[in-house]
Design a protein around this nucleic acid. Structure first.
Lengths: 213, 213
DNA sequence: AAGCCTGTTGATCATCTGATCAATAAAAGA
DNA sequence: TCTTTTATTGATCAGATGATCAACAGGCTT
């Protein structure tokens, strides 16, 4: 019967340890929020002394900013990859709306919302937020522009429309964070709204292709 | 030349002191966020000892929740009063969109966003958030239903549409908190989107009545 | 004028935080 | 094997925070 876990953590290569710390911070952020990232909480999860976490980062603000970037970049890449499979822009946009409203990524939404607030006191995080928002907007703008090129959408300002759609999605997801009930057909309503903005045919973005309600 | 301000704060009626504390908390929240509300920061602004603030509230969480409710309820009432002047539902809805996107209330938006996050660890605040969201939704639903009754809007689910519009507004405002540039014609895009959702005539919600872009 | 009521104080406690750094020990190189 | 390098420790510091409460004093009643 071995006593409590070894007093001292096994010595590891810096890159490996850094990865462990990043992963622990990621899990903490998704489970308990970015604010739950502290030297001690991360260290405890990794199983090392708090000083070691500090050793791998210039300061906690940087760790929080990096963790945010990691989480959000993964989400962006994941969704972008999903879209890439579909050939037609309307399908891509419809899938994008559907995917982002399906509630499967509420933990990521919580991280977004928290980052907007914490960015006020963490400049590194604020910078990260701007970068990641730009990345999301670029994904959306690509789809809108592809739709225009294919003659399926019509709007004079794809960039602005992309920002607008992004804002709407963020807002609806943030709302879902607090209130689930009372809202029906979120996807259908949003699809209809977006159809209006991108100048798509009525019903072309509604899941299944046929308008309801 | 009088020395530094009086050592002891003047004795006041509980209701008056409570009002001072509430007002100080309100200002702090708008200027530096709900997280800036602490026993000591509020006490310093009022000019009393920290213990006195604690004396007037069961705990800080309650003060934060009350402050949030005060700020947001005032906003809701203010906007609702503005709308009441206009007779036609489309005008009312157009003014509502215009007003909420004009950037004059970004400090309130910041409080909203922060409340969504803090509500995770402050149950009283979370309850307050739900109440205030319901209040906002009710204002919107009223306008939508009035529009339906007047034959200007057409949608089968005014409640859901109201939630949807609210979510969109929140998202766009939260976005504006972080990113101002790059987005043109926010009001026009949103108006167009909302027209689609409530089934209003094209251009009927765009400021000035004539569609652009 | 005396005395009571209560608004007010501020020191105190327990916790938490980020940051620092001398000491330690394990691995790598000689 | 001996030496050097460096990953790791954990105690320590300064600074916040919420909460508590005995002591104080201003104003009111009698």
């Amino acid at each position: 019967m071995s006593s409590t876990p070894p007093r001292r953590a096994a010595r590891k290569a810096p890159s490996e340890r850094a990865a462990e710390i990043a992963e622990a911070a990621r899990q903490l952020a998704l489970e308990r929020g970015l604010a739950a990232i502290t030297l001690r909480s991360v260290a405890a999860r990794v199983g090392v002394a708090s000083g070691l976490v500090a050793h791998y980062q210039p300061n906690v603000d940087a760790l929080v900013a990096d963790t945010f970037a990691t989480i959000v970049a993964a989400e962006t890449a994941e969704v972008a990859a999903l879209l890439a499979r579909l050939p037609e822009p309307p399908q891509r946009l419809a899938l994008l709306l559907d995917t982002l409203l399906d509630g499967a990524r509420l933990d990521v939404t919580a991280v977004w919302v928290e980052a907007w607030t914490l960015g006020r006191r963490n400049e590194a995080l604020a910078a990260s937020v701007r970068v990641q928002m730009d990345a999301w907007q670029a994904v959306l703008q690509d789809v809108v522009e592809a739709g225009i090129a294919a003659g399926r959408f019509e709007t004079p300002d794809a960039a602005s429309v992309a920002w607008q759609i992004l804002g709407m999605i963020d807002g609806l997801n943030a709302q879902a964070l607090v209130r689930w009930d009372g809202v029906n057909d979120r996807g259908v309503h949003l699809a209809r709204a977006v159809e209006g903005m991108v100048g798509a045919a009525r019903g072309s973005l509604v899941h299944g292709g046929s308008p309801r309600a």
